[in-house]
Design a protein around this nucleic acid. Structure first.
Lengths: 147, 147
DNA sequence: CCGATTTAGTTAGCTATGCTAACTATCCTC
DNA sequence: GAGGATAGTTAGCATAGCTAACTAAATCGG
């Protein structure tokens, strides 16, 4: 392993890390109007994009949170009519959590605000820049899986 | 404005947003061993990289947090010997907050863990990939300023 | 130069979100 | 069917966010 390449990797990792932090810090501002806390918003996002109902344990794992934390979050979200909780057919200990129409609509509206503000910042870029960023996101998704 | 370009911008914004979330979600795992909460770690990072002591209000603004929240964080961090608080010379109402040696060391060790895990994921990339990612981070930093 | 207003930070008290330990109910294994 | 494993909940605690109300210092108007 060449030392110079290794050094470049560290330097790039540092800049990538920093850029991701600053990007999300800016976009986060859009969530203040959502009327729902960040933990619930994030859990709702997993539910909406999972395509199928999830068990409590699956959802907790996806959110890197312990089961009791997720248990309380979904209980609150059920009271707010953001998710529907049904007992699992095959295992009476387990529950299935799915977003309601209201939950889905609320999440998509919030996500739209975030993506919109980023898309607006992208509009001064030319097509070559968009191509380049697109390929980099591809690479990025591969390396995220390797972390 | 061409509709197709606008659509590409939204699509890219969506993927970029998602990739940033997943990247930080993975890297965050490294912070569990730091022995310090995420809010303190982030505030300490601002202090270490600012290059000068900051007032409470400056630090709160940088962290997108209200003054009382930051007040409590820095009081706790002072007790833990992570920062030093000195009254400002020119304005006796104001305070200056700077990291201690211990605070700086703790932050840098934590950051090293994060960057290291990302750098390792980068090592299978060839030099062309690194070049491409580097240019994209450049672009990304420009657009973050436009958000 | 003095009273009124503004500004910087703190304190009090609430909410949201994280944890571990201990519990209940169900499932699975022998 | 008894005993252990597994899914979720409950209780109690810590951290981190907020607003409202306060203290003290600085500034401004007359």
């Amino acid at each position: 392993m060449s030392t110079t390449k290794e050094k470049r990797e560290w330097e790039l990792a540092d800049r990538l890390h920093s850029a991701a932090i600053h990007l999300l810090r800016r976009l986060r501002i859009q969530d203040l109007n959502s009327g729902i806390g960040p933990a619930k918003l994030s859990a709702l996002s997993v539910l909406v994009f999972s395509g199928r109902p999830l068990s409590l344990a699956e959802l907790a794992a996806a959110e890197q949170v312990k089961n009791p934390t997720m248990s309380r979050l979904i209980a609150a979200m059920e009271r707010e009519r953001l998710v529907r909780i049904t007992p699992a057919k095959e295992d009476a200990r387990s529950i299935l959590i799915a977003p309601t129409h209201r939950g889905r609509a609320l999440l998509l509206a919030g996500k739209k605000r975030r993506v919109e503000s980023l898309a607006k910042a992208l509009s001064p870029c030319d097509v070559a820049d968009l191509d380049q960023l697109g390929r980099s996101v591809e690479l990025l998704n591969q390396l995220i899986r390797r972390i």
